[in-house]
Computed example of a mutant assay.
Amino acid sequence: MTISEIIFLLDATPLSQTVQTDHKIETVCGSDMMSDVLAFIKKNALLLTGLNNLQVIRTAEMLDIVCLVFVRGKRPQEEMLKKADELGITVLSTDYTMFDACGILYHAGLRGGSRHDA
Protein backbone atom coordinates (compact mmCIF):
# COMPACT_ATOMS: atom_id res chain seq x y z
CA MET A 1 0.00 0.00 0.00
CA THR A 2 1.33 3.46 -0.81
CA ILE A 3 1.39 6.53 1.41
CA SER A 4 -1.01 8.13 -1.06
CA GLU A 5 -3.54 5.35 -0.42
CA ILE A 6 -3.06 5.74 3.35
CA ILE A 7 -3.73 9.49 3.09
CA PHE A 8 -6.98 8.70 1.28
CA LEU A 9 -8.09 5.91 3.63
CA LEU A 10 -7.40 7.86 6.81
CA ASP A 11 -8.51 11.22 5.40
CA ALA A 12 -5.09 12.33 6.62
CA THR A 13 -3.46 15.72 6.35
CA PRO A 14 0.17 15.73 5.17
CA LEU A 15 2.35 17.81 7.51
CA SER A 16 5.74 17.20 5.89
CA GLN A 17 7.42 19.57 3.47
CA THR A 18 7.91 16.65 1.09
CA VAL A 19 5.44 13.77 1.14
CA GLN A 20 6.68 10.57 -0.47
CA THR A 21 3.27 9.52 -1.80
CA ASP A 22 4.57 6.60 -3.89
CA HIS A 23 6.56 5.03 -1.05
CA LYS A 24 5.35 1.48 -0.40
CA ILE A 25 4.28 0.64 3.15
CA GLU A 26 4.53 -3.04 4.10
CA THR A 27 3.52 -3.08 7.78
CA VAL A 28 1.87 -0.94 10.43
CA CYS A 29 2.47 -0.52 14.14
CA GLY A 30 0.07 1.39 16.37
CA SER A 31 1.43 2.39 19.76
CA ASP A 32 2.10 5.23 22.15
CA MET A 33 4.82 3.19 23.86
CA MET A 34 8.06 3.44 21.93
CA SER A 35 9.40 0.35 23.72
CA ASP A 36 6.63 -1.65 22.02
CA VAL A 37 7.51 -0.09 18.68
CA LEU A 38 11.13 -1.13 19.16
CA ALA A 39 10.00 -4.72 19.79
CA PHE A 40 7.58 -5.13 16.90
CA ILE A 41 8.32 -2.76 14.03
CA LYS A 42 9.34 -4.06 10.60
CA LYS A 43 10.92 -2.65 7.42
CA ASN A 44 9.01 -0.06 5.33
CA ALA A 45 6.68 0.55 8.23
CA LEU A 46 4.14 3.13 9.18
CA LEU A 47 3.72 4.12 12.82
CA LEU A 48 0.36 5.27 14.16
CA THR A 49 0.74 7.13 17.44
CA GLY A 50 -0.78 9.70 19.73
CA LEU A 51 2.54 10.35 21.45
CA ASN A 52 3.61 13.83 20.49
CA ASN A 53 7.25 14.34 21.42
CA LEU A 54 10.70 14.13 19.88
CA GLN A 55 11.12 10.55 21.11
CA VAL A 56 8.76 9.46 18.30
CA ILE A 57 11.05 10.95 15.66
CA ARG A 58 14.13 9.42 17.29
CA THR A 59 12.47 6.00 17.37
CA ALA A 60 11.39 6.33 13.75
CA GLU A 61 14.95 7.24 12.79
CA MET A 62 16.44 4.22 14.59
CA LEU A 63 14.03 1.81 12.91
CA ASP A 64 13.90 3.37 9.44
CA ILE A 65 10.16 4.05 9.75
CA VAL A 66 9.14 5.85 6.58
CA CYS A 67 5.83 7.36 7.69
CA LEU A 68 4.32 8.63 10.95
CA VAL A 69 0.60 9.19 11.42
CA PHE A 70 -0.49 11.18 14.44
CA VAL A 71 -4.00 10.12 15.50
CA ARG A 72 -6.81 12.09 17.15
CA GLY A 73 -5.90 15.19 15.15
CA LYS A 74 -2.61 15.69 16.95
CA ARG A 75 -0.06 17.94 15.29
CA PRO A 76 3.64 17.69 16.13
CA GLN A 77 5.70 20.74 16.99
CA GLU A 78 7.63 22.51 14.24
CA GLU A 79 10.92 21.15 15.65
CA MET A 80 9.62 17.60 15.19
CA LEU A 81 8.45 18.26 11.63
CA LYS A 82 11.79 19.80 10.71
CA LYS A 83 13.70 16.77 12.06
CA ALA A 84 11.35 14.35 10.26
CA ASP A 85 11.87 16.24 6.99
CA GLU A 86 15.66 16.08 7.47
CA LEU A 87 15.36 12.31 7.88
CA GLY A 88 12.96 11.81 4.97
CA ILE A 89 10.09 10.66 7.19
CA THR A 90 6.62 11.53 5.93
CA VAL A 91 4.38 12.92 8.70
CA LEU A 92 0.59 12.83 8.54
CA SER A 93 -2.26 13.63 10.91
CA THR A 94 -5.70 12.02 11.05
CA ASP A 95 -8.74 12.76 13.18
CA TYR A 96 -9.40 9.02 13.62
CA THR A 97 -8.59 7.35 16.92
CA MET A 98 -5.76 4.84 16.88
CA PHE A 99 -8.23 1.96 17.14
CA ASP A 100 -10.24 3.16 14.15
CA ALA A 101 -7.15 4.01 12.07
CA CYS A 102 -5.69 0.55 12.70
CA GLY A 103 -9.02 -1.05 11.77
CA ILE A 104 -9.31 0.93 8.54
CA LEU A 105 -5.80 -0.03 7.45
CA TYR A 106 -6.30 -3.66 8.47
CA HIS A 107 -9.57 -3.84 6.53
CA ALA A 108 -7.74 -2.41 3.49
CA GLY A 109 -5.19 -5.24 3.67
CA LEU A 110 -2.27 -3.73 5.57
CA ARG A 111 -0.95 -5.88 8.41
CA GLY A 112 1.27 -5.44 11.42
CA GLY A 113 4.32 -7.54 12.04
CA SER A 114 4.20 -10.05 14.85
CA ARG A 115 6.93 -10.95 17.27
CA HIS A 116 7.24 -14.29 15.46
CA ASP A 117 8.02 -12.62 12.10
CA ALA A 118 11.39 -11.31 13.29
Rank of each mutant, 00 (worst) to 15 (best):
D32V: 01
F40L: 15
E61S: 11
T18G: 01
Y106E: 08
Y96A: 12
L15W: 01
Q77Y: 09
T13C: 02
H107E: 13
T27P: 05
E78L: 12
V19G: 02
L87S: 10
E86V: 00
Q17H: 09
N52T: 08
T2H: 06
S4Q: 14
E78K: 14
R75C: 02
G113W: 05
A108C: 03
L54A: 02
T2E: 13
S93G: 02
L68P: 00
S93T: 15
F8C: 01
V19L: 14
A101I: 04
N44H: 15
F70T: 01
S31F: 04
Q77N: 06
L87M: 09
E26C: 06
L81M: 11
D117A: 08
Y96H: 15
M98Q: 12
I25V: 15
D36K: 03
A118L: 09
K42Y: 07
I3M: 04
D95C: 06
S35F: 07
L46R: 03
K42P: 02
A108E: 11
T21L: 07
D36C: 02
T27F: 14
L38H: 12
R72D: 15
G109S: 11
L10W: 08
Q77K: 13
D85S: 09
M62S: 11
C102A: 15
L10S: 05
N52S: 07
R75F: 01
E26N: 13
S31A: 15
Q77G: 05
E5R: 15
H107D: 12
G112H: 06
I6A: 07
I25W: 03
L15S: 01
K24I: 13
N53L: 10
Q20I: 06
L68Q: 05
E61L: 03
F40H: 12
V19N: 13
V91G: 00
I41R: 06
C102Q: 09
R72M: 10
